[in-house]
Design a protein around this nucleic acid. Structure first.
Length: 284
DNA sequence: ATTGTGGCCTGCCCGC
DNA sequence: TGCGGGCAGGCCACAA
């Protein structure tokens, strides 16, 4: 599923469209447009805009735009009134793409991730939820069978916490302290720490030998630093391996599977509302 | 404010 | 062979 790592791969793919000019937009699924956004708004704003850059914050892919038709974006015209219109680095519009669990990105019909864990390997035309056409040919498409992703215009980036790849030890300490919530739930709270999904969180906690059910504010300094160090290492290593599903715990994500490290039967339960696997013998 | 729960979406896989 | 139910999890609305 697209977690931080997959979205980073998508970002690099989307980055190949920098410099291209948008000729047209297709948004056939109104349900997919978020924050009150409409296909008409997209059609009024996007054509004529040029892609100036791409960014990522957690699982949110941001496409920065510049130019476009004058007069179509009066101040305060953003759909939900929360984000000011034109919030990009260059003052232009920002396109936000979310991939949910099964969303894939294609540029010019090519995918950077062919096989998506829990996704589908098929490519049905009906699954295209959003498509940009560029001047001179070429497209950027968001394909999502399950419709759990979405498209936003000028998303409120402040709603997301610091990215998990760059958060400091102090930042991690700050977001865990004074919280009685399960450690896993807090790590997956995108408003506090952006980027970790179910697979990555289980992998990090398993490697750090911390139980996901631990109260978030119950870690001592040694454990906190171990968690931070482990998180950074997991993100680097699994990016090199190719994604969130390449963790060492992955083979254990089945009922009754043994711990890949010690052989003890793994525990399986809902933690933070998500199916969670952990080793009761090693994680404390 | 914090924390937990349920529901949404729908392809896929298993058992009957 | 077809069918039905359960499952996957990111996100949001809602409740206490």
């Amino acid at each position: 599923m697209p977690e931080l790592l997959e979205v980073e791969f998508y970002r690099r793919l989307a980055d190949t469209t920098v410099g291209r000019r948008i000729a047209g937009v297709e948004a056939p699924d109104a349900w997919y447009l978020q924050g009150g956004l409409t296909a008409e708004q997209l059609a009024a704003v996007l054509p004529g805009c040029t892609v100036t850059g791409t960014r990522r914050r957690g699982k949110l892919l941001l496409v920065d735009l510049d130019g476009g038709p004058a007069g179509t974006r009066p101040p305060g015209s953003s759909p939900d009134g929360a984000a000011p219109a034109g919030t990009g680095p260059g003052g232009g519009a920002v396109l936000g793409l979310r991939f949910g669990m099964t969303g894939r990105l294609l540029v010019d019909g090519q995918a950077v991730i062919e096989r998506l864990e829990y996704g589908s390997n098929r490519n049905e035309p009906a699954w295209v939820r959003f498509r940009l056409h560029f001047t001179g040919g070429g497209t950027l498409e968001l394909v999502d069978p399950r419709r759990l992703g979405g498209v936003l215009l000028d998303p409120d980036e402040a709603r997301l916490g610091p990215d998990a790849t760059t958060v400091t030890v102090g930042g991690l300490r700050g977001l865990l302290e004074r919280s009685a919530a399960p450690l896993k739930a807090r790590l997956m709270d995108q408003a506090r720490l952006a980027g970790l999904g179910n697979l990555l969180t289980d992998e990090v906690l398993w490697r750090a030998k911390l139980a996901p059910t631990r109260p978030a504010d119950g870690l001592d300094d040694v454990e906190l630093r171990r968690l931070h160090r482990t998180m950074r290492r997991v993100l680097v290593q699994l990016e090199e391996r190719g994604g969130s599903h390449t963790g060492d715990l992955q083979v254990g994500r089945a009922r009754g599977a043994p711990c890949p490290r010690c052989g003890e039967p793994l525990a399986r339960a809902q933690v933070g509302g998500r199916t969670t696997y952990w080793c009761p013998a090693e994680q404390h």
